[in-house]
């Protein structure tokens, strides 16, 4: 579904991604782990071109999306993204946050968009919060709304950029539970996280990045119980 070939990205003089190759199959849950500054978030953000790669290909459903004449806005409608800092729109209610893009981009009738949004909110356990403003919600609730907002566009893949890093420990669980359900429902997911237990439990494949490269990848068993590289062993010893 997603294929990344020889991806390079530099910020000024910092070479953050070095010839990265990655493949994500339909229905697969890929979890990217690694130390801070290893390039994992940048890699994820290159997948929907929030960061524009310097060289290499990002291919999504057979289309090279980092081509000049590709309408990236159309592509992004099929790739939901969830951010570390939630980024809900504070000027809109929870319901409006979720319905704005289906209404404006997919020209869905408001009624239908509202119904879908309420279904999604119930699914993430927030059916009663539709008319709240984001400022009235806890971090965990905000993140669950953000997930619902991304799902409202009926994406083919969901990208998660450290979705629980800004949350208090007791709120981490409620967000991870929602993500787990998504995974079991067969959603294709690419997740950057520091939650190793979650990665072990939900990931179909784990990718370990360091220094802008994929150092090791494999099944959760391979990665967590028999890590091959010294760097990964060292990294895992911190958890």
């Amino acid at each position: 579904m997603i294929e990344v070939k020889k991806l390079n990205k530099r910020f000024k003089n910092l070479h953050v991604l070095k010839d990265v190759d990655l493949k994500v199959q339909k229905g697969e849950v890929v979890v990217i782990i690694g130390p801070s500054g290893s390039g994992k978030s940048t890699l994820l953000r290159c997948l929907n071109l929030l960061e524009v790669p310097e060289s290499g290909d990002v291919i999504f459903e057979g289309i090279k999306i980092n081509d000049k004449d590709v309408d990236i806005n159309k592509i992004r409608q099929k790739m939901g993204m969830v951010f570390q800092s939630f980024n809900l729109f504070p000027n809109m209610t929870v319901l409006e946050n979720i319905t704005i893009s289906p209404i404006k981009l997919k020209k869905k009738p408001t009624e239908e968009a509202n119904r879908t949004a309420l279904d999604l909110l119930r699914r993430v356990g927030l059916g009663d919060k539709a008319n709240y403003y984001p400022s009235k919600l806890s971090g965990g609730q905000k993140q669950r709304v953000a997930i619902a907002r991304a799902l409202a566009m009926e994406p083919d893949v969901m990208l998660f950029d450290e979705p629980t890093s800004a949350l208090d420990p007791e709120m981490v669980k409620e967000v991870l539970t929602v993500m787990k359900e998504l995974a079991y429902d067969g959603m294709t997911m690419v997740i950057v996280t520091h939650e190793m237990n979650f990665a072990k439990e939900v990931g179909d494949r784990i990718i370990f990045m360091d220094g802008g490269k994929i150092v090791e990848e494999g099944s959760p068993d391979d990665i967590f119980t028999s890590p091959k590289s010294e760097r990964l062993r060292e990294f895992l010893s911190h958890f």
Partner: peptide, 15 residues
């Protein structure tokens, strides 16, 4: 306005 707002809007497919 926080940079994340633009990113979130663009990630949903808005121009």
């Amino acid at each position: 306005v926080d940079k994340g707002q633009m990113e979130a809007a663009r990630s949903l497919g808005m121009t």
